[in-house]
């Protein structure tokens, strides 16, 4: 039973990772990030319930807050990019290389 739950959350996590790695649009990648964090939250909540550990649940709350902060920062950066008139797209970010 635990294995099934766990494998789905890890599957979700790697889906998020795939989104971040494969997708070209930055917003989609941001979503992928949030997916990864939420997948971890699900597994953390499940395990906290299993080990009946209150501290883990508090951790989930904090992780959610941190994820939000992350999203805010990500959005700000992407908005900045768009304000410059550049495509919010990976291929636009080729300037720095070598």
């Amino acid at each position: 039973m635990t294995a099934l739950i766990y494998s789905t959350t890890i599957l979700l996590f790697f889906l998020g990772l795939a989104a971040v790695v494969l997708r070209r649009q930055l917003l989609a990648m941001l979503l992928g990030l949030e997916l990864m964090v939420s997948a971890v939250n699900v597994s953390l909540v499940y395990l906290a319930g299993l080990f009946s550990d209150a501290q883990a649940l508090a951790a989930v709350l904090i992780i959610i807050a941190v994820a939000a902060a992350e999203a805010v920062v990500g959005l700000t950066l992407i908005i900045d990019l768009r304000e410059q008139g550049r495509e919010a797209d990976c291929s636009a970010l080729r300037e720095l290389k070598g």
Partner: peptide
Amino acid sequence: EEAREAGLKYFF
């Protein structure tokens, strides 16, 4: 120009 791009790369 470059700072925003670097910031984004660093963020992701």
